[in-house]
Design a protein around this nucleic acid. Structure first.
Lengths: 145, 145
DNA sequence: TATAGGACCTGTAGTGACTATAGGTTCAAG
DNA sequence: CTTGAACCTATAGTCACTACAGGTCCTATA
């Protein structure tokens, strides 16, 4: 009748709830991003709600393209609330810049690729605009920036 | 007075001309993307203009985000001109789709990050919108799409 | 209670596309 | 002939996982 006991969060359930793979969870534990949980008598991992919350944080940050190093920093702020909060903004802003740089690269790629694919009604390699675009010097000289 | 001899393209010059690092060029040779050049009497690589052209192709394709596997395929078309040219377009089109998917992911990231950073005038971790956004469930539920 | 089979365990190796390092050799200018 | 930059090979490291091998545990059903 006592169902207030431990929620018996196995690694598989945690995986399902967070969208992480089981191996990834073990990997996060190994590299110290997720604290080691308790174990069952047979040695299997048994998690608590805090783990779920933290893993969701990690997954979400990763989805946003933060590196694991960034994630570690961000978790540092969570774990040690006394650290400067402006650093949090700095990480966010720095990452936003990264994302915007990648965006502009990708937009340039899209433009060139679209051009290539649309123009490609080629009758063979010697006249293929895709191949040509890659061999010739003009098309991509500085898409970065 | 004979300056029609071999252009003495060393690996360093090739690197400078293509924007590749020396190590990357040796790596491309090892994995078979760039053919092994001749050697000097002392065993150093001496390239010919064809290598420069091919390496430029590889670098440009990589810049456009093609994988090395794609590059290998594309070079296959160059090396064996009898293969179906529709495959070239297929590779281009498939890659364009990839690029567009990455673009839409990045745009979603940008939106969320910008939001986070702009709103972050936080006075500490407990109220930091960046940290909150990562802990709470709502903000990012499906940016992929 | 026995058993089947899914979930779990550890440890290691592989992925992609390089990059870095160590420890040595060659080349070309002065 | 010497100096030092550029080259050589081979190996290990990077990031963020992913996959595999070879085993153990847990639990639902017969």
């Amino acid at each position: 009748m006592d169902h207030s006991g431990p929620p018996n969060l196995t690694i598989g359930i945690l995986a399902k709830r967070t969208g992480c793979k089981v191996e990834t969870i073990r990997y996060y534990e190994k590299i110290g991003v997720l604290p080691a949980p308790g174990r069952s008598s047979g040695g299997q991992r048994r998690y608590e709600p805090g783990h779920l919350k933290r893993l969701n944080f990690v997954r979400r940050a990763r989805d946003l393209g933060f590196t694991l190093a960034d994630v570690r920093s961000l978790l540092g702020f969570v774990d040690d609330q006394d650290r400067s909060r402006t650093e949090i903004q700095a990480i966010g802003a720095r990452h936003l810049e990264n994302v915007r740089a990648r965006l502009s690269d990708l937009r340039a790629m899209e433009r060139v690729l679209d051009d290539m694919v649309v123009r490609c009604q080629c009758g063979g390699v010697p006249d293929c605009p895709i191949i040509d675009a890659l061999f010739d010097d003009d098309s991509m000289e500085d898409h970065s920036q």
